[in-house]
Write a protein that binds this DNA or RNA. Structure first.
Length: 120
DNA sequence: TGCGTGACGTGAA
DNA sequence: TTTCACGCCACGC
């Protein structure tokens, strides 16, 4: 079957899973694409995590995903360009107490929230 | 139907 | 040491 639309019940929607993990990120904390990807088992799936964010962009309300808390491994707000405004991501982080300077999260390593470690 | 793209990360040269 | 290239999965065209 070349079109395994449902290979098994374990058909874990990567997007759905990513959204769920990001939603668990507490305010004032930040995580990375790689951390989420690794938590999902996809060590190289960091790219797709970004896709999930973009797909979750239009989501609002209970399904809203704090994409502004998800940044790259370097602590840079790489996805800010996809937000409503170039500063929306930074504004949201600062509103939670996260200091952002030059599109880079200060004390990123300290505010880093690892799902596989916190949720473990 | 099939190919390329895409908010990244890691490994190797 | 820094830089280049590759790899992953899913979605869009």
């Amino acid at each position: 079957m070349k079109t395994p639309k449902e290979p098994t019940e374990a058909h874990r929607n990567f997007f759905k899973d990513v959204h769920d993990v990001v939603r668990l990120v507490p305010a004032g904390r930040v995580t990375t694409y790689g951390a989420i990807a690794h938590y999902l088992g996809a060590r190289n799936g960091a790219r797709m995590v970004g896709w999930a964010m973009m797909a979750a962009h239009p989501l609002v309300g209970p399904t809203a995903v704090p994409a502004h808390r998800v940044i790259n491994r370097l602590g840079l707000l790489t996805g800010r360009q996809h937000f409503a405004t170039s500063t929306a991501m930074q504004e949201a982080l600062e509103a939670e107490g996260v200091h952002v300077e030059d599109d880079q999260v200060q004390d990123f390593q300290r505010l880093f929230w690892d799902p596989s470690k916190e949720l473990a």
